[in-house]
Simulated assay, not measured.
Amino acid sequence: MKTDAQLKQDVEDELEWDPAVKATDIGVEVSDRIVTLSGHPSSYAEKVAAEKAAHRVAGVKAVVVEMHVRLPNDDVRTDEDIANAVRSVLRWTVGLREDDVKVQVEKGWVTLSGEVEWAYQSHIANRAVSQMRGVTGVSNRIDVRGDVDSEDIGTNIARAMQRHAERETKHIQIKVQDGTVTLSGKVGSYAERQVARGAAWSAPGVRAVIDNLVVE
Rank of each mutant, 00 (worst) to 15 (best):
L7Y: 01
K8Q: 14
E12H: 03
E12M: 10
E14W: 01
E16I: 14
K22D: 13
V28S: 00
V30P: 05
R33S: 14
S38G: 08
P41L: 04
S42E: 11
S42I: 03
S43A: 11
A45T: 04
K47A: 11
V48M: 10
K52S: 12
A54G: 09
H55L: 15
V57H: 00
V57S: 00
V60E: 01
V60Q: 01
V64A: 03
V64H: 02
E66D: 12
M67Y: 06
H68F: 06
V69W: 07
L71N: 08
N73G: 04
D74S: 14
V76Q: 12
R77E: 13
E80F: 08
D81V: 12
A85Q: 07
R87A: 02
R87N: 15
W92Q: 07
G95D: 09
L96R: 04
L96N: 04
L96V: 04
E98R: 14
D100V: 02
Q104I: 00
E106M: 03
W109D: 05
L112D: 03
E115N: 14
E117R: 11
Y120Q: 09
Y120G: 02
Q121W: 09
S122K: 15
S122I: 04
A125W: 02
A128Q: 13
V129E: 00
Q131W: 10
Q131A: 15
M132K: 05
R133Q: 11
G134M: 02
T136G: 01
R141M: 09
I142A: 05
I142W: 04
R145Q: 14
V148H: 09
V148M: 10
V148R: 12
D149F: 06
D152S: 14
I153Y: 09
I153T: 07
G154R: 15
I157F: 08
R159A: 15
M161K: 04
M161F: 10
Q162E: 14
H164P: 00
H164F: 06
E166V: 04
R167Q: 06
T169G: 05
K170V: 06
H171V: 02
H171A: 10
I172A: 05
I172E: 03
Q173G: 12
K175R: 12
T180E: 13
T182C: 03
L183V: 07
L183R: 02
S184G: 15
G185F: 06
K186I: 11
S189K: 05
Y190D: 09
A191I: 02
Q194I: 06
Q194N: 09
V195T: 15
A196S: 08
R197T: 11
R197C: 07
R197D: 06
A199W: 03
A199E: 15
W201C: 03
A203Q: 08
P204L: 03
R207A: 07
N212I: 01
L213Q: 02
V214A: 08
E216I: 02
